[in-house]
Design a binder for these strands. Structure first.
Lengths: 162, 162
DNA sequence: ACACAGTTTGCAATTCATTTGCAACAAGGC
DNA sequence: GCCTTGTTGCAAATGAATTGCAAACTGTGT
């Protein structure tokens, strides 16, 4: 196991572009600040309620229909809703964030299995790393350990249809 | 566990932006094509050999020094080297890819523990999901399952220095 | 040496996701 | 009413990554 070594500090610092686990101290603070459920936010939550699979900003924006608002507003509000803990961000590694509605009191911790051909997404239940995280904490002295885990594969249909 | 549901197919199709596991059939094909180790490629591998932690395209480009080449060339060659199986791409979720040198015969499968404050990276040995993948294959009928897993936390120094 | 095909490079321009500056707005206090 | 604060639309900017194109380079056959 290699020695730790700091990467070059990033010269540019886009607020949410920093390397961050889904929930850290900062978002924890913001989560407490009461924000209102404005019309656009309501509409976005509604869209997420309808499709219960991770959607991109653009997809959500497209699905708004009646209650259309600016794409920038969708971006801003999804960030806000994430901080409020009402929505969970996922990263499938294709460069665009995806969001899922978060049930009340649910920390939303689960993972996905994504088809690499047709992008079908299956939600995977259960999480496999709690004790692993504890081990890492012991081994490396890190605290507040979280993780990001997604599975990829070829779905039955795509495997057949080749 | 929810029903599978295809996302909207992406209208734009940047070659490597597709949702893909580190190694799929396509890269498997390309891996076999013999590509030469040109000067820039050599230099890039050299840089990766020096720093043995995941580096971004930009960091590598900056570290080239003497054997400077265009940043686009760095991007192109890291993609090529990845296809050749000489380099492994990692995604820490901050929007920029990072690369590590891959030892001969090593499939490079390991994960990282990243400090969310100072970006210190520790390589984590061992992988925890082989049997999980088998279970997913059984449960959902997916094949060729791979995964992407990174850990995040607060390193001892940052925890102390707060 | 010479020509030719295929690969690679530099450079500039482009794409795409995401963020941001700014002025106009809305709502809640005082 | 007026002031403060958060929100929105719009346009512009940022930043990673890709790409078109022409020039340079590689190796191969003659």
């Amino acid at each position: 196991m290699k020695q730790p070594c700091a990467l070059h500090p990033h010269p540019h610092s886009h607020a949410h572009r920093l390397i961050q686990p889904p929930l850290n101290e900062l978002t924890e603070q913001l989560r407490r600040r009461d924000r209102k459920i404005t019309a656009p936010r309501q509409a976005i939550l509604e869209v997420l309620r309808r499709h219960q699979h991770p959607l991109t900003n653009r997809e959500i924006h497209a699905a708004l229909g009646e209650s259309e608002c600016d794409l920038a507003t969708v971006y801003r509000n999804l960030n806000t809703l994430e901080q409020m803990g009402m929505v969970r961000r996922f990263d499938f590694g294709d460069g665009t964030a995806r969001f899922e509605l978060l049930a009340e009191g649910d920390d939303g911790h689960h993972h996905h299995l994504v088809c690499t051909r047709c992008s079908t997404v299956v939600e995977v239940d259960g999480c496999f790393s709690t004790e692993v995280e504890a081990r890492l904490a012991r081994t490396h002295g890190f605290t507040q350990i979280t993780h990001r885990l997604e599975f990829f594969g070829l779905c039955p249909k795509c495997a057949a249809g080749t």
